[in-house]
Design a protein around this nucleic acid. Structure first.
Length: 555
RNA sequence: GUCCCAGUAGCUCAGCAGGAUAGAGCAACAGCCUUCUAAGCUGUAGGUCACAGGUUCGAAUCCUGUCUGGGACGCCA
């Protein structure tokens, strides 16, 4: 049930009927009726520009068309209180706001489900995100990717998509050998040997920990084992350690996945060669200078790309093609990859692969997450003070908390660079938007508790008693939620939910300061307002849940 | 050189499947707690929507070009 949607559909239907009845356009000429919510209250609750759109077809002035249409409208058919023609030909509708009171029982009844819609119609969407190499700590870029990806998944799910969350583990290829060598060097170091780190090795603190852990557990054992076994051991140990750390950090960050897909499995299950052969059969693969190439230029890429190097090993692209073929074979309607900005150059070749495999280019969507800059005391922070390396997700989580991070990382459009203000994220003041929103939730909880202590229940209430301007604004805001979530899902813009939650909190604070909710002199109105408060509480909590922020009952 | 993202108030950013007088937060200024949490609210001020063309009844929004900032252009992953 969606009160707002029903009401808008009714209004659109009535406009459509009136346009036809006014003979200003035929059914074929009639574009979709667009309702917008004017920024200006004086312009009503809804407005349509249909008269302007029909100006050419009807060969009449927009205002005249508008008048013809308005004459035909039956106000009782769509809860319309008043109609005005304004400006160049807008038709403004002032609604009978009694419909808004239906919202409260709807929200109270739906509870955690409020905001759900069937916008996605059960379409199967897979979202691959984070997918950081298991060779070091998650850093800020990953944190933003994780926040945006998880929020997007939550939103898609709420909007009726069938979502699968996946993490692609790059546990094959060069970087894993480098991991093994780095771990080995740290192991020997832990045993007191003076060893140089490999040239392309990983210098993170975590590798030192791993070396120490192995030294503690196995002592000298791995110093003189055969090279193959040594490499294998350090590799496996390192991967296991790094992966469990990734999983732990992400769990603490409240991000979870349905599948962790191993790149190595593509090798062990022999998926790569068949994928290349498939492309070869379709004529997109050729040999040149001792290497095997993929003709991505056939799909608009700048240049063709190597699949198999001269040394017969695969480039990163090959298993990735096999991986995406695997995803497609699993029957997803849409694949969404969330990548850091530094990978955007990789998009054309991956899209080429999708097309070469016989799918529409749009089957794969790549959302690019722009860079994060950390600011403290007004200055850009590049390196961790403690380690001198890039600041990690874990460090920031320890310093500013998960709620602030989740909120801040989804606060801005993903394709804008993000300035993360640590002082603001940490501050317990109204400047901090995450506190502002959480405070709104906590405030309501306090009111509800106090009402209960005074013996006021909201089993029965008359929602029409809410007639103040602030109250109606709150109701309207509540009604927008489902549509906001649907829009955020369709446009892949989770930041809209963050903004919405902020706006709703703002409307709540404004209402709170203007009106006393609990008034023992007027229990009927109190009950209605409490019901409204409960509806706001539910909606705030649902919105915060979508972006991964806790909704505290006390602050 | 090619490609991607961004350029909107002093700052950080929304708005961009075209619509009416371009919004919010912060900062500035002026107010509001004997009353459910002041972690809050109310008001004032603040704009050549980078620039130049074009499309349109109408452009911050669409198209072209220019400028500025960031990023990407490996037989790395």
């Amino acid at each position: 049930m969606n009160v707002m949607q029903d009401m808008q559909d009714q209004l659109k239907a009535e406009i459509k009927r009136s346009v036809l009845a006014a003979n200003v356009a035929t059914a074929e000429q009639l574009p979709e009726i667009i309702l917008e919510q004017p920024k200006e209250k004086a312009h009503g609750d809804y407005a349509t520009n249909i008269a302007m759109q029909l100006a050419r077809v009807a060969k009449k002035a927009p205002r005249q068309i508008a008048e013809d249409i308005v004459e035909q409208i039956d106000q009782s058919q769509a809860s319309i209180r008043q109609i005005e023609i304004a400006g160049p030909g807008f038709i403004n509708f002032f609604m009978d706001n009694q419909y808004l009171t239906k919202l409260i029982p709807t929200i109270l009844q739906e509870g955690k489900q409020y905001g759900t819609s069937n916008t996605g119609q059960g379409k199967k969407v897979q979202v691959e995100f984070v997918s950081a190499n298991p060779t070091g700590d998650l850093h800020l870029g990953h944190a933003r990717g994780a926040s945006v990806g998880d929020a997007l998944c939550n939103i898609l799910d709420k909007a009726g998509f069938n979502v699968s969350r996946e993490y692609y583990i790059n546990d094959a290829g060069n970087q894993v050998n480098q991991l093994a060598s780095s771990v080995e060097a740290r192991y020997l170091e832990a045993l007191g040997q003076d060893v140089a780190m490999p040239e392309d090795g990983y210098h993170g603190e975590d590798i030192i920990e791993i070396g120490q852990a192995i030294a503690d557990e196995y002592g000298q054992k791995w110093i003189n084992q055969p090279a193959d076994e040594r490499q294998q051991f350090f590799r496996d140990y390192g991967l296991k350690y790094e992966l469990s750390k990734l999983a732990k950090d992400l769990e603490a960050f409240r991000v979870s996945f349905d599948h962790w897909f191993s790149e190595t499995s593509l090798y062990t299950e022999n998926k790569i060669e068949p994928a290349i052969e498939l492309l070869r059969d379709k004529g997109y693969v050729y040999e040149q200078e001792g290497a095997t190439w993929f003709r991505t230029t056939a799909f608009g890429d700048d240049k063709d790309r190597v699949l198999i190097k001269q040394d017969h090993s695969y480039t990163y692209l090959s298993p990735d093609i096999a991986y995406h073929k695997n995803k497609l074979d699993r029957g997803f309607d849409t694949l969404i990859n969330i990548w850091g900005a530094d990978h955007h150059g990789y998009i054309p070749r991956m899209k080429a692969a999708i097309q070469a495999l016989g799918y529409d280019a749009d089957t794969l969507e790549v959302d690019i997450i722009q860079m994060v800059n950390l600011f403290e005391n007004g200055e850009k922070v590049k390196m961790s003070k403690r380690t001198g390396k890039a600041v990690t997700l874990r460090e920031l989580m320890d310093e500013v908390g998960t709620d602030a991070m989740r909120y801040f990382f989804v606060m801005r459009s993903a394709d804008s660079h993000l300035d993360f203000d640590m002082d603001l994220a940490k501050s317990e003041s109204n400047d901090n938007p995450v506190y502002y929103v959480q405070y709104a939730h906590a405030r309501i909880c306090t009111m509800l508790t106090q009402a209960e202590e005074k013996g006021i229940t909201i089993n029965d209430y008359d929602a029409s008693l809410i007639q103040s301007e602030k109250g109606e604004e709150l109701l309207k805001k509540l009604g927008e939620f489902t549509q906001v979530v649907a829009d955020a899902a369709i446009n892949r813009t989770p930041h809209r939910v963050t903004q919405y939650v902020f706006d709703l909190a703002s409307a709540l604070h404004s209402f709170y300061n203007a009106e006393k909710v609990i008034d023992l002199e007027d229990v009927d109105t109190t009950k209605a307002k409490l019901a409204l408060m409960d509806a706001v509480r539910i909606t705030l909590a649902n919105g915060m849940d979508l972006i991964g922020v806790h909704a505290p009952e006390k602050m």
